[in-house]
């Protein structure tokens, strides 16, 4: 249920639900979302056991956003996000083992245990982090888009940030730069309604965040971020716009996180009923599951996917505990590179 804002006049109205996904795509999306959900549940469990330290921000509830957007990408495209990043990494195809082992601070992690939950990267998968400072990834994302512009490629950069970052100065500076230079950047606001414990109503005078790019002429849409098909449909429009050299695009994903901001968040700023209502009525995985059944999938088909996902997550959890801590010599590596160009 995407609502057009800026370019409504230029496009046909899109009333009603998104075009449903075909069986294969839907099944893949279901599997990818389920992998994120089960991975995050396991991460929460390992955190509870003291195996994961520090901050740990879970993505449970928001899975449709990254899975839907990832379906719009081409080889060479980039993805960058904040610290709630496990889902993004799994969606780009990064190994569950490497992500989980980074969470436990082991040498088998993507950053050799030196980055942790908020700082992982994979150049191979086009994933540029994993950034711990709210909003910083937005100008970095504009820079990744700049590199596409500079090289005259048709690649785009997906730049994710939360609604909590959406009023930062550097976000607006990045909007301006991206619009000015026509950078192929899809700015994606993951509006899960709460910036830590502060609801969006208490933090943002702008009520419709999809319009936040309008002073710079950046087209924006509100998207049902709990529906993977709606996300993909909006993502395709945004990507086509960017690839055609028209500059940036803004998507506000209306989504919801079921868990606290981080593991140590008691979530007193909202009622259990509110969370329960979202889970029961809008859960992206349940919705996809039902759609699959409607399209003729059997319980046995789904069980097979569930088992495959469980096995991947269990393997990742095992690996993340078997992989040793980084050797002490790692303290002194990766500070500076040696080779001059």
């Amino acid at each position: 249920m995407a609502q057009a804002t800026e370019t409504a006049a230029k496009r046909k109205p899109r009333a009603g639900a998104a075009q449903p996904l075909g069986r294969d795509q839907l099944q893949q999306a279901y599997r990818d979302m389920l992998l994120i959900r089960r991975f995050e549940e396991k991460a929460g469990q390992l955190y509870g056991m003291g195996l994961i330290g520090g901050f740990c921000h879970l993505y449970i509830g928001q899975e449709a956003v990254v899975v839907g957007m990832q379906m719009c990408l081409e080889p060479g495209d980039q993805v960058i996000t904040s610290y709630r990043d496990h889902g993004h990494m799994l969606a780009t195809g990064m190994e569950a083992r490497g992500v989980m082992a980074e969470l436990t601070g082991r040498i088998g992690g993507y950053s050799k245990g030196k980055g942790g939950s908020m700082h992982m990267f994979s150049r191979e998968k086009g994933f540029f982090g994993g950034h711990g400072i709210v909003g910083a990834q937005v100008s970095l994302g504009a820079g990744l888009a700049f590199s596409n512009w500079y090289r005259e490629s048709r690649n785009v950069c997906l730049t994710y940030f939360g609604e909590g970052a959406s009023n930062q100065g550097q976000v607006f500076e990045s909007f301006n730069l991206a619009a000015l230079m026509k950078l192929p950047c899809i700015f994606i606001i993951e509006n899960n309604k709460y910036g830590m414990g502060t609801s969006v109503e208490r933090a943002s005078a702008s009520r419709d965040l999809s319009k936040n790019g309008s002073p710079w002429g950046i087209p924006g849409e509100q998207v049902n971020g709990m529906d993977v098909a709606a996300v993909k449909e909006a993502g395709e429009r945004a990507a086509a716009h960017c690839r055609a050299g028209n500059g940036p695009y803004l998507l506000e994903m209306k989504t919801y996180r079921y868990r606290g901001h981080s593991m140590s968040d008691p979530a007193k700023y909202r009622t259990r009923e509110e969370v329960q209502k979202m889970r029961e009525q809008s859960d992206p995985i349940e919705t996809a599951r039902q759609a699959l059944l409607d399209q003729g999938a059997t319980e046995a088909d789904l069980k097979k996917i569930d088992d495959e996902v469980k096995a991947i997550v269990q393997d990742a959890a095992d690996f993340s505990q078997q992989s040793p801590e980084p050797p002490e010599s790692e303290l002194w590596t990766d500070i500076l590179l040696e080779e001059a160009r």
Partner: peptide
Amino acid sequence: DTPITEHGFTGMAVGAAMNGLR
């Protein structure tokens, strides 16, 4: 030429460097 927005354009340049530009 950039606008007078150091925070934004510096971040943009850092992002470009992360993707291999200089």
